[in-house]
């Protein structure tokens, strides 16, 4: 882990060398992020609620999901760009080193401009919480932290699966954007608002519902089942097969030459 942070610090240093470019990109990321919740803001000027969820309740859900996604964009960028690593043969180089392979992949690349989104998401989270009348207790605080943690884990798992897929196809498939970018886009609304088929798919195949819906119901007091508060823990179980698949991929990886 020590190497991981050291490599991240180096990455940050090299990014900051291009200072103007960094600052401009940082600002443009703020505006891009704004366009994400612009939809929510402008629709709530016409409607008062969406299936019982009010503006700040939706923003709470939105900010947690965006937080998890941007966290991965900053700290696990290498996984997102895994196809480059395979195509250019850089993965062979990593395999030679006597360190954990996943951690090496993670710090292979990073994108600190995206910290802009991370902070932005946290600000919205705070704004949403201060506007909501939540009766906080210890379980609810744990639940909120679990939601944030599980948001990180779910996107990490999906990135991991997409990366494992590169072992077979060599090229990264653009279709995975449906599950990463599209999934993020969908999960910024409480999943209960969608139609049945969608809910089933995103509960049992890719378990977004345990990140942004059941625990949200508990925090908002729409449900009293304490079990909902701990449902994000299921994501840890979801992570296990994803890790196994990735390691299976590494085992049968036979380099692409070059």
């Amino acid at each position: 882990m020590k190497y991981y942070f050291k490599a991240l610090a180096l990455n940050l240093k090299s990014e900051l060398e291009y200072r103007t470019s960094f600052i401009f990109s940082f600002i443009s990321q703020i505006i891009i992020f704004f366009s994400y919740y612009f939809v929510i803001l402008s629709l709530f000027t016409k409607f008062s609620n969406i299936k019982g969820f009010t503006l700040y309740e939706v923003l709470l859900c939105f900010s947690i999901v965006q937080f998890g996604y941007s966290f991965n964009e900053v700290f696990a960028r290498g996984l997102d760009k895994f196809d480059n690593l395979i195509i250019q043969g850089g993965f062979d180089r990593l395999l030679l080193r006597p360190k954990n392979i996943i951690i090496q992949v993670l710090y292979n690349e990073s994108d600190f401009v995206k910290t802009s989104r991370l902070f932005h998401a946290l600000i919205i989270l705070v704004v949403a919480i201060t506007h909501l009348n939540i009766k906080w207790n210890i379980i609810k605080i744990i639940c909120l932290l679990l939601m944030m943690l599980s948001a990180i884990i779910i996107f990490f798992s999906i990135f991991l699966l997409a990366a494992s897929y590169c072992f077979i196809t060599v090229q990264g498939l653009e279709v995975r954007n449906v599950f990463t970018d599209g999934g993020k886009h969908m999960a910024q609304y409480p999943i209960g608002i969608f139609s049945k088929g969608f809910i089933y798919f995103f509960t049992f195949i890719i378990p977004y519902a345990f990140v942004n819906y059941y625990p949200l119901l508990y925090i908002l007091g729409k449900s009293n089942k304490t079990i909902y508060a701990f449902s994000p823990l299921l994501l840890f179980i979801y992570l296990i097969p994803c890790l196994i698949i990735f390691y299976l991929g590494v085992k049968r990886y036979g380099s692409v030459g070059s």
Binding site: K46, G182, H185, M186, F194, S195, F198
Partner: peptide, 18 residues
């Protein structure tokens, strides 16, 4: 994206007023 947008609007319209 099309389906997600449409479902979001459906949900708004169903709970909608005004």
């Amino acid at each position: 994206f099309g389906f997600v947008y449409i479902m979001v609007y459906f949900a708004f319209y169903k709970s909608g007023s005004g």
